[in-house]
Amino acid sequence: MIDVALSLNELRALCLEVLLGNGFEAQQAEPIADVIVRAEADACRSHGLYRLPGYVASVSSGRANGRAVPKITQPTSAIIRVDADKGFGPAASESARPALIAAARRHGIAAMAMGNGHHFHALWADIEPLTQAGLACWAFVIGQLSVAPHGGTRKLMGTNPVSFGWPRRDAPAFIFDFATSMAARGEVELKRLAGEALPAGWGIDPAGLPTTDPAMALAGAMLPFGGHKGSALSMMVELIAGPLIGEMTSHSVANKVAIADSGPPPGGQLVIALDPAAFAPQAVGEAEAETFFANARAQPGLRLASDRRHAAREEAHRHGVNISRDLMDRVRRLLP
C-alpha cells in the first residue's frame, strides 16, 4: 500500500482540523497537534498520528474534556501543581512550564505534578523544552494497565515510561525516554494492526504463557524490561506519579474508570527539574559533562540517546513524513 507524503505543516493542519472539528478548543488542540507532529518528525510512530483517533474518541465518549482549561497552583514555591481539568497532558505541561523553569532557577530544583488529566504523548516532548532552558530533568508518567510484574502473570502496572534530559550548549540535549516495559503499548498496538508478531519476551497470554501474538499480549500482559530491575522501576513510577502526587495507580484506574473508547486513561505525571548552575560552577560542570560525551563518541559505533530521533527530525524538516494509507483513511474519517 502506497504511503501518503505530507509536509510537517500539512500534518499539523490535518491534526488541527480533526481536533477542532470534534469538540476541542484551540488551547487543547494546538499543543496536541504539536506533539503529534514532533513525534512523526522524530520517527516516533507509536506516539504520532496513530494517537489522534484515541484523543478524539475519549472526548466523543464524554470521558475527557476537549475544552479543558488547566489550573495551576503552587503549594510551595518549588512545587507546581496542574489540575488538567480532565484535559490532556500537552496543554497541561505547556501551561505549567514557565512556572517550573522559574522555580528551578530560583531554588535549584523544582517539581511539577499533573493530575486530573490524560497523558498520551511521548515524555521527551515535555523534557526537551526544559533542556533548552538549561535545566536537567526527569519525567515520569503512569500508563494504561498492561504490564505484569516480574514473576507474576497478571497486569499490575502501566508501561510507565521514564525520561531524562541533560542540557548541552553546543549540541542537542542528551535525552532518553523509554517505557519500563519491553516496549511501549503503542508499539504492540502497531504490530497488531500490521499483522506482525512480537519479539519473544515481550508478552504473555491470558493463561500466563509466553506469546508473540500482539492481541494475546494485550489481552494477557506485557512484560517489564530487565526482569526484576525493570519491574522495580515500573513500581517506582506507579508510586511517584500516583500516590505521591494524589493520583491513582494504573491498577486502581482500571478498576474504577470505565474506558470503552480507544483513548488514554487518566493518570498522573511528575516532572523534576534541576538547574546545574545551582549545584556546581557552571563551567566546571559543563566541561566535565562534555568530556564524558566526547569519550563516549570516541567509541566506534556508539549512538547516544536521541541521535536517531535528531537525524529523523532533520530529514522530516527537509522532506516531510510518510503516513500509511490505512492510517490516513482512519484519520480522514474523523474530519467534520
Rank of each mutant, 00 (worst) to 15 (best):
M1F: 14
V4T: 14
V4A: 06
S7V: 07
E10Y: 11
L11P: 01
E17M: 04
L19V: 12
G21I: 06
N22M: 05
A26G: 02
P31V: 06
A33L: 10
V35F: 06
I36W: 09
R38D: 15
G48M: 08
G54N: 11
V56L: 10
V59H: 00
R63C: 10
A64G: 13
A64W: 02
R67T: 07
A68W: 02
Q74E: 13
S77G: 15
A78H: 06
R81E: 14
D83I: 10
A84I: 07
D85K: 03
G89K: 14
A92P: 01
R97T: 11
R97C: 12
A99T: 07
A99R: 00
I101S: 05
A103I: 06
A103V: 07
A104S: 11
G108S: 08
G108Q: 12
G108I: 11
H118N: 01
H119C: 00
A122T: 11
A125Y: 04
A136S: 15
I142G: 01
L145K: 07
L145F: 12
L145D: 08
T153W: 02
T153L: 13
M157I: 11
G158Y: 03
G158F: 04
P161V: 14
P161Y: 10
V162L: 14
W166N: 12
F174Y: 14
F176T: 13
G186W: 09
E187H: 13
E187I: 07
V188G: 00
V188H: 01
E189I: 14
L190Q: 04
L190V: 05
L193K: 04
A197R: 12
A197Y: 02
P199N: 10
A200S: 11
G201N: 13
I204Q: 06
I204R: 00
D205S: 05
L209E: 13
P210D: 09
T211C: 10
P214W: 03
P214M: 03
M222F: 13
F225L: 10
G226H: 07
A232K: 03
I240R: 04
I245Q: 12
G246H: 02
E247F: 00
S250E: 13
S250F: 06
S252H: 09
A260M: 13
A260Y: 15
Q269Y: 03
L270V: 14
V271C: 03
V271Y: 00
D275C: 09
A283W: 06
A287I: 13
A287T: 15
E288S: 07
F293Q: 03
R297A: 14
P300A: 09
A305T: 08
A305L: 04
D307E: 15
D307C: 12
D307H: 09
A311F: 08
E314C: 10
A316R: 03
A316D: 05
H319L: 09
G320I: 09
I323S: 03
L327S: 08
D329G: 15
V331S: 01
R333G: 15
L334Q: 08
